[in-house]
């Protein structure tokens, strides 16, 4: 405490005489020696007044800012440069689910901050439980994201082409894709089976859908096919939900403006569908949320490792750095949510 710390007239770097060549970034290593035996007590001045860990975390975050700025910028620029961009309902996005996930991430941001505060106050037990809560909330976020991805895949929305069943427009390519799908041997058997099923074994909806499917099958092979016919086929397979719904009761009845197409009533059909602007949308959506999800996963790995330690004041710096990273992940989602779900 009473060690006389004397400043050097020139040069900012110095060595404590009793601790030659230490590699620490601490500011005062000679304190315990009550003045030492000789010479002035010198002080070490780091470049920035923060720990190396925190400095590196912030440097890493500034690269991350640029990384996500490029991704988000790419999305914004593609979206507003595109002649057609699907509405959230066209691509089966659910705004309430997105809002729920936002809430989950905000909660996890609070819990990690509370873990940090508890660790600082040497409440190791509560620090550990807050950390566990963060881990669980992060996993919940990923779970919800997985559920959303599954809903996309179910509708044939994939980020890449061989699996994706999304077409940009109801043109001849679309018509031939539907024809090809209906002509697959397994599909022929399945359709025959459906045709032979007595009406009594089908629901009212299925009976009507079967009739429409029959018409669709005729339309795609019709030599006198009109351009509009293919739009009708596309509409039957997977209709574009009407504009932002829920204004009237009918919106709720139809499940948020979602009218069921043939693909919904017979999930095994998996016919190609038309979503104008849907392919580019899928690329950007999976790219953005995918990279975000990878970041969430990395955070979860870090939290699981931290749970192995005793989270006392010694580890507070580590928790703070992990927290900084996690808040950044939250930050990205804060922009992703309105951009993807509400724009």
């Amino acid at each position: 405490m009473n060690a006389p710390a004397i400043s050097l007239p020139q040069g900012s770097r110095s060595l404590g005489p009793t601790h030659g060549g230490n590699g620490h970034d601490g500011n005062d290593h000679t304190n315990g020696h009550g003045g030492g035996h000789h010479g002035p007590v010198l002080q070490y001045q780091p470049g920035l007044p923060l720990t190396r860990g925190k400095l590196f975390m912030w440097l890493f975050l500034s690269t991350e800012i640029m990384f996500f700025a490029a991704l988000l910028g790419m999305y914004v620029v593609l979206r507003f440069g595109a002649p057609v961009w699907p509405k959230p309902h066209h691509v089966h996005l659910s705004e309430p689910i997105g809002a729920f996930n936002t809430f989950v991430l905000i909660c996890s941001s609070v819990t990690i901050v509370l873990a940090f505060e508890s660790a600082k106050a040497n409440k190791t037990k509560s620090a550990k439980s807050w950390m566990l809560a963060t881990l669980l909330l992060g996993s919940l976020f990923l779970g919800v994201k997985g559920y959303e991805y599954a809903a996309k895949f179910e509708h044939g929305i994939y980020p890449w082409s061989p699996r994706s069943r999304v077409f940009e427009k109801p043109d001849l390519y679309y018509g031939s894709a539907v024809r090809a799908r209906l002509g697959e041997p397994a599909m022929i058997d399945r359709l025959k089976e459906l045709d032979d099923t007595p009406e009594s074994k089908l629901s009212v909806e299925q009976v009507s859908a079967r009739r429409r499917l029959l018409k669709v099958r005729q339309m795609v092979v019709d030599p006198n096919q009109q351009a509009f016919d293919l739009a009708v086929v596309a509409d039957q397979v997977m209709p574009l939900p009407t504009d932002r719904p829920l204004t009237k009761h009918e919106g709720q009845e139809a499940g948020g403006g979602h009218v069921s197409g043939l693909n919904d009533i017979f999930p095994w059909l998996k016919l190609p569908a038309v979503i104008p602007g849907g392919t580019m949308w899928a690329s950007t959506y999976f790219f953005l949320t995918g990279f975000h999800a990878i970041h969430v996963m990395v955070g979860l790995i870090v939290f699981s490792i931290m749970l192995l330690y005793k989270l006392g004041p010694k580890r507070a710096g580590m928790i703070e750095n992990a927290g900084l990273y996690w808040h950044f992940v939250d930050l990205v989602w804060i922009f992703l949510f309105p951009l993807l779900y509400l724009f």
Partner: peptide
């Protein structure tokens, strides 16, 4: 300069 990861001073 106390912002040094540890902690008690933090």
């Amino acid at each position: 300069l106390s912002d040094h990861g540890s902690d008690a001073s933090h």
